[in-house]
């Protein structure tokens, strides 16, 4: 009787302990790391909209007025294009808006742009949906993914993509990671799970935690292009290690401007503006103004042509991106 009671109590205690130890391990290994990375600001919009508002006095955007000017009358007639795009490009298209739109075309409620505002910032995935659905006239983004093209095709929409500037695609590691350079083949091998430890590429003996972004985001689409035929592996929960991720140079250097990460050289070439401009850095991609081919508003094409003109390209360059060749 006493033995039976002992076994029962021990079983309950063991079960309880099992759950406590497992959940504690899971929390300390995974949850806590992601909690650190999912800060409030990033969770909301991945960029602080109010720092780059076109007409705010303390804005961080480049302020040049353009020879193309949309008028109050255009606004009344709903002839000013609604522009949207990727977070990383928001400082550019906000500067385009400052250069050409009347102030009343932009309406910001302190947190987000109001539905009537001609400037929006919904990031790549939602922006592509918005232009296909006709909610936005022009979006500034990385090239569309297969899914985004399919989404437009399903709605009978043909998207026109016109390059507006260039930017380097960069791979990032923690600033304490001793690795400074990878070859493109090594990057592909890391993301294909063929190289799993940093010591295989000259680093310390730590597991490589290869991070990816959501499908359809601009940098994920660019990343898949870099991978070519090599298929990237994507586990549901990564085993912890020392991480590698990717983004666009300007976003890392200027928008986030946060210590703690460093951009890797690729094939021995650092992603500096000079190296990008002279074509030495190996992964430079164009970003595009994207609009519907059947958009009846003539100001859409006028505005895109202006972005590609000398004036528009000066804004691209002064913002920190690389202008078209």
């Amino acid at each position: 009787m006493k033995r039976k009671r002992y076994i029962q109590t021990a079983s309950i205690a063991a079960l309880l302990l099992l759950f406590i130890v497992y959940n504690l391990w899971f929390y300390l290994t995974f949850t806590r790391r992601y909690q650190t990375g999912a800060s409030e600001g990033r969770r909301a919009k991945s960029i602080e909209l109010d720092r780059y508002l076109p007409f705010a006095e303390d804005t961080l955007i480049v302020r040049h007025k353009g020879s193309l000017q949309f008028s109050e009358q255009d606004l009344e007639e709903h002839a000013i294009p609604v522009i949207d795009g990727a977070a990383a490009l928001y400082p550019v298209f906000s500067a385009f808006v400052y250069a050409t739109y009347p102030e009343r075309a932009v309406s910001f409620d302190g947190t987000d742009f109001t539905p009537s505002s001609c400037l929006q910032m919904n990031n790549t995935i939602a922006a592509y949906q918005a232009v296909a659905d006709g909610d936005a006239d022009i979006v500034l983004c990385a090239p569309p993914s297969e899914e985004q093209l399919a989404y437009a095709r399903e709605r009978g929409v043909t998207l026109v993509t016109e390059p507006v500037g260039r930017e380097a695609f960069v791979f990032l590691v923690n600033e304490n990671n001793p690795v400074d350079n990878l070859t493109i083949d090594e990057v592909r091998a890391i993301y294909s799970n063929e190289i799993r430890n940093w010591k295989e590429v000259g680093g310390s003996d730590k597991r490589i935690e290869a991070l990816q972004r959501n499908a359809g985001s601009g940098s994920q689409t660019a990343f898949l292009k870099v991978m070519g035929d090599a298929e990237p592996k994507r586990p549901l929960i990564q085993l912890p290690g020392s991480a590698i991720g990717f983004s666009f140079r300007y976003y890392v250097e200027d928008v986030v401007a946060e210590g703690g990460v460093k951009m890797l050289s690729l094939n021995g070439v650092a992603p500096t503006k000079d190296n990008i401009a002279k074509g030495a850095y190996p992964i430079v991609s164009e970003f595009y103004a994207v609009y519907r081919e059947d958009n009846p508003n003539p100001n859409v094409k006028r505005f895109v042509d202006w972005m590609r003109s000398e004036e528009g390209q000066r804004i691209v360059e002064d913002t920190g991106y690389i202008p078209l060749e």
Partner: peptide, 17 residues
């Protein structure tokens, strides 16, 4: 945790390593 992973900034995550 999966929710956090979906909302996690790669840059913040790497910086907080």
């Amino acid at each position: 945790t999966v929710y956090l992973k979906d909302n996690c900034s790669i840059i913040d995550y790497i910086a907080g390593e």
